[in-house]
Design a protein around this nucleic acid. Structure first.
Lengths: 207, 207
DNA sequence: CGCATTTTCAAACATATGTTTGGAACGATT
DNA sequence: AATCGTTCCAAACATATGTTTGAAAATGCG
């Protein structure tokens, strides 16, 4: 009962990376098994079929991402709205630019958006919607005065859009601005910019 | 010499729609030919291979999008920076939410970002980079004072990100906010929000 | 019309890919 | 050591897909 779990684990690892880079459909079971050092039949034996493996990968990566960058963000209850916004933005950027599972998670979601599978709805409910809800609290807190649902929502879109841009347009960014780095210091600068930019935007939208 | 062009045209139409929804790899020649009412061999006869058809589609869709929403935006030379920003944002949103070729173009780019093909670099140089350059002029004009390259760039990212969010996360948006409409009036409201939000952000970043 | 070129078509081909299968190897338990 | 359930594996299978082919149909032209 050890090699069993080890093989499953290796498959999850290999599949996570390959699904993240190629998407569900373009990823091949053969490539996954080869990288995992497993037989071609291993996927069907351990996960039923390719789709079962994919769902398991999504589950595994979601949990890994939420564990490495927990929604609480390690903030004190006394943190100001601005601090919480910065923490939210920073954690999102860190997840996007991380190497390994957390970034797989972002890439998997990106692929789902471009070419949805049956897993999309559940993934949104489990990961995407809670993050939005959390951001909504922050924005309401930062608003100059009680804001309408529509205005708050537009601010959410503006903030999320600024962060996810680096997920969804990275090839273009790197092609046009090859000198732009994304080391931790760069990300911190970026997070601060997005936070300040959004703070001004929120105040403008709720003044 | 008539049916010839007609078949090529039908193939381009059908392929545009299918490549846009499924991406290059997941789209099948058979489905494209069926929708175009052409024989399976038509793609290879007229475009060499599937990739040739894909390149032709990209070219066709780029031209169609730039023709329907030209970079000049129909603005007077006397337009203020704010008007030009609004026009830029609006045209981008219109292209994203359009039905037909202009939206195919956006979707094709989105697929390229998620799973790049050999066409990506040329596509960026031809379409993406010029738009960025144009936006850069607007931002520099709106800055409170001469801004560094880095600050301007971050503002570009912020604005583009807000717009492209609706391209790259639409499934999530529609799932979480099913009541959110995207009729012309909604898009106008959205464009105004993004413009005002960004205006405040730019001023904050360049103060 | 007669002929050459172009275009269309049904079928076949070659390859890739998810899945199944029957048996072998393995590990735990008695 | 013997047995039983689990896991692994090489091979085969079924299907999907891009491409090719050779002939038929259509088209242009004198």
């Amino acid at each position: 009962m050890r090699t069993n779990l080890e093989t499953q684990q290796r498959l999850l690892e290999a599949a996570g990376e390959i699904f993240a880079t190629r998407g569900f459909r373009a990823a091949t079971v053969r490539e996954i098994c080869q990288r995992a050092g497993a037989n071609i039949a291993a996927v069907n034996y351990h996960f039923g079929d390719k789709e079962g493996l994919y769902f398991a990968v999504l589950k595994s990566c979601s949990e890994a991402a939420l564990k490495k960058y927990p929604p609480t963000l390690g903030l004190k209850p006394t943190a100001t709205g601005e601090e919480r916004l910065l923490a939210f933005v920073r954690s999102l950027l860190l997840r996007i630019f991380d190497e390994g599972r957390p970034s797989w998670h972002s890439k998997l979601i990106a692929h789902e958006m471009a070419e949805p599978t049956k897993a999309l709805a559940a993934l949104i409910d489990k990961v995407y919607a809670p993050a939005l809800k959390q951001l909504e609290m922050i924005v309401r807190d930062l608003a100059s005065r009680p804001a309408s649902v529509a205005v708050v929502r537009q601010c959410l879109f503006s903030i999320l859009g600024q962060c996810l841009y680096f997920q969804n347009s990275r090839p273009a960014i790197q092609h046009i601005h090859p000198e732009q780095g994304f080391a931790p210091a760069d990300l911190e600068r970026l997070a601060k910019h997005i936070t300040q930019f959004s703070l001004a935007g929120i105040r403008q939208a709720t003044k």
